[in-house]
Simulated assay, not measured.
Amino acid sequence: MNAIKTSSIAVTMCCLALAVPANAQTQPYPSRPVQVILGLAPGSLMDTAARIVAKGASQLAGVQFVVENKPGAGTMIASSYVAKARPDGYTLLLNGVAMSVNPSLYKEVPYDAARDFVPVAFLVNAPQILVVHPSLGVNTLAEFLAKYRSSGKLNFAHPGAGTMPHLAAGLFQARSGLKMQLVPYKGGAPALKDLIAGHVDLLFLTPVFKSHIDAGAVRALAVASDERVETLPNIPTFAEAGLPLPEISAGAWIGIVAPRGTPEAIVQKLNQTFNGVLQDPGVREEFKRIGQVPKAMTPEQFAAFMREDMKRWPAIIAAAGIKAQ
């Protein structure tokens, strides 16, 4: 009798022990802090966007979304870290166009962007605006193309190889037929400084530099976007100006992805959270201040966007004459 009783107690204890992980798995998500990893340094525009979104998500979800910077290797250090993370919704990657262009820019990429991640939420994009020095004496894109089509002496600044302005410059040069010297800088600020000083002739920048456009320090000719920018409504799109550049109309986009294998229910819940953040008027105003345009998408829409973005960049990079490193 004692043996039976002892055996019964052992079986009960075993069942309880087995039940603990199951109960743990049924805890509501999220029930602890969520890491948001990004591959650029603190103070970058992407970092600013990450902190705006993380703050809003923390308020909506009731747990902390913590931004962690892992800069380096064209954001590949951060991407590789998240690709190997446990797919439980507690480690996310905030990245952007680098996910699409890196396979064409680097000979070795330690992950497969199409296979190793699950798209969660599109967040914002920063449209690229073509600006020139006022001394060029043009007010429209048509005037610029007519005046300088056979010049061959223009210097086109960009903030470094593989950056969105560099890729946009290469595409613009290929589509316009202009022959220009692409001049690399270590960042957008020094490139803009030299443009304002008249040391270079043109540059692609984002709406965050609206004050320089308004002050007349640079002259905006067109914006690479499907629609005009809300904060700069007088600047026509490239299509309106007569030279469509649909390949770069998405601008320098930013979104959230999770490791492959993340449960669909968690992906959907995160998507609802981030889209909720984007609807907040205060958040939209913060993004407007830094020249970024919020845009909500479903995970399916974001996945389709990423597939198309990955397809378009090899040809653009080839047109820009950029070689894999």
Rank of each mutant, 00 (worst) to 15 (best):
L270T: 04
I254N: 07
I290F: 10
A258T: 05
P244N: 03
G291C: 10
I254K: 01
D280E: 12
Q292D: 03
A258C: 07
A250G: 02
P246E: 12
D226L: 14
P236Q: 04
P246F: 05
G282T: 00
I256C: 07
V283I: 15
V277S: 01
G261E: 12
P244T: 10
K295T: 12
V293K: 08
T262K: 13
T231C: 00
E240F: 00
P233H: 12
I248K: 04
T273F: 00
T273V: 15
P263H: 02
K288M: 15
I266H: 03
K269F: 00
P236V: 02
A258W: 04
A239P: 01
G261P: 04
L278D: 07
P259G: 04
E240Y: 03
D226H: 03
P263F: 08
E230V: 00
Q268K: 15
I256Q: 06
T273D: 03
E227M: 14
A252Q: 10
T298K: 15
P259N: 11
G255M: 00
K288L: 14
G291N: 14
S249I: 01
I248G: 01
F302E: 07
M297R: 10
F287H: 10
E264A: 15
I254L: 15
R228D: 02
I248S: 05
A258N: 00
G276C: 11
T298R: 08
D226P: 07
L243R: 06
Q279R: 15
R284W: 08
I256D: 08
E264L: 14
M297L: 13
A265G: 12
A252I: 03
A296D: 06
S249C: 06
L278W: 07
A250L: 12
E300W: 02
L245I: 13
P294L: 12
Q268T: 04
L278V: 01
A241T: 01
S225D: 09
E286F: 06
A303Q: 12
E247H: 02
G255I: 02
E286G: 05
K269P: 11
T231A: 06
E286W: 09
P263R: 07
R284I: 13
P244V: 02
E264F: 08
V267I: 14
E300N: 05
E230A: 11
E240T: 02
E264Q: 11
E300M: 05
P294C: 14
I248E: 04
P246A: 04
P263M: 09
E247K: 05
W253P: 00
P259L: 13
G251Y: 08
M297H: 12
I256M: 09
Q301I: 08
T262C: 11
N275F: 01
S225H: 08
P294D: 09
F238P: 03
K269L: 14
P246D: 10
E264V: 09
A241P: 01
P233D: 08
A265V: 15
G242P: 03
A296Y: 09
V293E: 13
A250Y: 05
N271Q: 07
I235V: 04
R284L: 10
A303E: 13
L278T: 10
F238S: 05
I248F: 11
I290W: 11
F274M: 12
A296W: 10
G251V: 05
V277L: 13
Q268H: 05
K295Q: 14
K288W: 06
R228G: 02
N275R: 13
Q268W: 03
A303L: 01
P236M: 01
I235N: 01
E240A: 09
R228F: 05
L270R: 06
N234G: 10
V257R: 08
V229F: 02
Q272K: 15
F302W: 02
G255D: 01
